[in-house]
């Protein structure tokens, strides 16, 4: 791969993307349009995240790539291999070792530190998209803080179901100003956005938008005073490492419907097991 520039993108493109990132950091939660390039991966498979990562990665970075919280899912493997080939950076599965983490649909359970960068892959950046399909209109709504329609949606959920029915991509208000879609992380992960010491970058390649939550920024999940935001919980611990208060994957183990619940974050789980954490239910 030596005919390609470091991390695949040419320096001019990286500079363009970094400028967009700086704008995004300057206005937390605001979607900055950028000249997204055609990448060797399909749109929808992480091109935005890859472009952001490619623009900020340096030869001394240590890169972790996860999908659904796991390092070994096929797309995470594919993206990590891409950067190993084009950037020759040291890969890791350890959250605490990584300087740069690209992720799809989860925020790691291990708390992030100042100096780390988390890059989230975003399919649909616009939080108002399902309520208003036109881009020209949603741009105005953000400019005028016309977010009433999102609260109408929450009101309707409570009216129909008794609670808000949004379980992932749960809308948040960033820095008290911009309504943001935090990528399809489960709402369980939303609290990790609030006041995080790491830099959180969001890349949408197909829709051509970048946004950011700078370190220590207030991020509030939308709710009503009498229907406060709440996260998922499980009534049992991880079957492998015994952890509670983490997001669990449901695994079907036999055709009689037997199931196991295990940590979605494979690195977190593996290290707890190595440290001697006890498992919960065994099949």
């Amino acid at each position: 791969m030596n005919q390609y520039n470091f991390a695949y993108l040419d320096e001019h493109t990286k500079r363009m993307i970094r400028r967009a990132i700086l704008k995004a950091v300057a206005v937390p939660g605001y979607q900055v349009p950028f000249g997204s390039r055609e990448m060797p991966l399909s749109y929808g498979w992480g091109t935005g995240g890859v472009q952001v990562t490619a623009s900020v990665i340096g030869p001394d970075d240590v890169l972790k790539v996860i999908d659904q919280g796991a390092d070994d899912t096929t797309n995470a493997v594919s993206i990590r291999k891409f950067f190993e080939r084009t950037a020759a950076v040291r890969p890791t599965t350890r959250t605490d070792e990584a300087t740069l983490i690209q992720t799809r649909h989860r925020i790691p359970e291990t708390p992030l530190q100042a100096g780390q960068i988390l890059v989230l892959q975003v399919p649909i950046p616009e939080p108002l998209r399902w309520l208003e399909p036109r881009e020209a209109e949603t741009r105005k709504m953000h400019a005028l803080e016309e977010y009433g329609v999102m609260y109408v949606r929450l009101y309707e959920d409570i009216t129909r179901h008794g609670k808000v029915a949004q379980t992932y991509e749960y809308p948040v208000l960033v820095n008290g100003r911009y309504l943001m879609r935090p990528s399809p992380i489960p709402k369980f992960d939303n609290p990790k956005l609030d006041g995080n010491p790491a830099l959180l970058l969001f890349g949408a390649g197909r829709e051509k938008r970048i946004y950011a939550v700078p370190p220590h920024t207030r991020v509030r999940s939308l709710d009503f005073d009498d229907h406060p935001f709440e996260v998922e919980h499980w009534d049992r611990p991880c079957a492998l490492c015994g952890a509670r208060g983490v997001f669990l994957d449901e695994i079907i183990v036999d055709d009689k419907g037997g199931r196991l619940f295990v940590c979605s974050d494979t690195d977190f789980c593996a290290r707890r097991q190595a440290d001697g954490g006890a498992g919960g239910d065994r099949p």
């Binding site: 016309e146 009433g148 329609v149 609260y151 109408v152 409570i158 009503f224």
Partner: peptide, 10 residues
């Protein structure tokens, strides 16, 4: 309109 102007109690 209430929600648009900041009403937050269902």
């Amino acid at each position: 309109r209430l929600m648009a102007l900041g009403a937050r109690h269902y």
